[in-house]
Design a protein around this nucleic acid. Structure first.
Lengths: 242, 242
DNA sequence: GGCCATCTGATACATCTTGTTACAACTTGG
DNA sequence: CCAAGTTGTAACAAGATGTATCAGATGGCC
């Protein structure tokens, strides 16, 4: 399990489209989950770390456009809109709201896949979808992380010892920078177990990690808290210093 | 103006399309130049710093697709392909070659403009200055807001701690300056939940935000109250002056 | 095994955040 | 000026978060 393949969330109220598309994406090396309404989509987004959302804007109940607006405003996932009407007005509105792309039904799944890949290519940073190299090195703000050797080096070059759990947490953050990860997702990405009801272990690990990598743990610049949402790593992460 | 407006190169062998589109782009605050063949396009690319290329792939002489491939491989300009045929195969080929978007003729100029803006938004900050993380920075009245890092800096440079909710509210305002936003809209833009009947939470958040960013909270200069309408942020907001 | 250091989740408690409520001040229309 | 409705904000409570401390668990070492 080197680099997980990008996870796509397909939101559409038509069961056949939803399922067919998801299967097609999986067959092409992506991970996919589905939702049949805006409400369900919100739940799915909380349950797993999603990298891109394919969203039908014409759905009963909550408007797709409203969900799209909310996603663009508050989260960092790119959005590709899907619609039955080939109406120019709606196309433009979608793009102006901030969706990353727009595909009209009936769509060619191969085209949608190409667009998904194009958007991912532009939006993912770091080594997210790069080939697993044997010496995976990540850099941020002068820090250097050797993923395979599980070592962390401070900007001054000194090695900082991290425990296993702290390292897994850091790696989870580095692979998804600028993305809010809630406690369930972090638990899944680090230990893989299911969190208890009053589970504070992630909070503890974050606290311990902060103590080691933040200049001032009381005013964290790297690992931000998003109240009611989780945590977010914010720093330019790059693959190798050029 | 601090940041020069993006320069678009329109490559098409139809004079009317070329000129009309260029005029439309200029009218909408972009700079534009034109070329009627792949050869001329290459000259234009050498003559001026072009930010994005709109390229008709069906042209006499050198193939548009070949130029597109060349651009994608050797330069960093994003490319939007333009074509007369609504053939799926060509669409997909274009995207797979690495074009950033694809529009079929006849096209709605407003849509093309929206797509140009979308592509520029994605590519400008990222690839250009080698910083893979999109550093979305907004400025108003000496204040500086780092959207991705969720940080606010006062005119004196000192960091002002904002809670998660306060930050989301400020961001919603900054993205829509001089626009009256009612409580439902603000609720949707910040928390995404549906407001109760006697919901005063927005009022409270506004009050808390004002306390932090207004010089005199009792005489607010930045966040105005519109009686019976909502609130409005009024201050010249500009993008990162780089 | 016995000893020790380290790691990690659980617990507890201080602190922070936010929606709710209440009430005073203000606005509007008559 | 009055009544009804709207807004500002203090006070409060529920819930979320930060982290010190502790107890098992684990693993190295003799």
């Amino acid at each position: 399990m080197n680099t997980p393949s990008p996870h796509i969330l397909v939101v559409d109220d038509h069961r056949d489209i939803r399922e067919t598309l998801a299967r097609y994406l999986v067959k092409n090396g992506l991970r996919a989950s589905t939702a049949d309404s805006a409400a369900q989509a919100r739940k799915a987004l909380k349950a797993a770390a999603v990298d891109l959302v394919v969203l039908d804007i014409m759905m009963p109940g909550e408007d797709g456009l409203s969900l799209c607006r909310h996603l663009v405003e508050t989260s960092s996932q790119p959005v590709i809109l899907l619609t039955a009407m080939a109406d120019d007005t709606d196309r433009v509105i979608g793009l102006e709201i901030g969706a990353d792309d727009y595909v009209t039904k009936p769509f060619n799944p191969r085209e949608l896949l190409a667009r998904i890949r194009a958007v991912l290519r532009r939006t993912t940073q770091g080594a997210r979808d790069r080939d697993p190299v044997e010496h995976e090195e990540l850099h941020f703000e002068g820090w250097r992380v050797d993923i395979t050797k599980r070592e962390l080096f401070a900007p001054n070059g000194r090695s900082v010892p991290l425990s296993s759990g702290e390292f897994q947490l850091l790696r989870a953050f580095l692979k998804r920078p600028n993305m809010v990860l809630n406690r369930d997702q972090l638990m899944d990405l680090t230990s893989g177990r299911t969190p208890g009801v009053f589970d504070r272990s992630i909070d503890n690990q974050v606290s311990r990690l902060r103590r080691k990598i933040e200049t001032d743990p009381r005013d964290p610049r790297l690992i931000k808290t998003v109240w009611g949402g989780g945590y977010m790593f914010t720093a330019p992460v790059r693959d190798k210093p050029s």
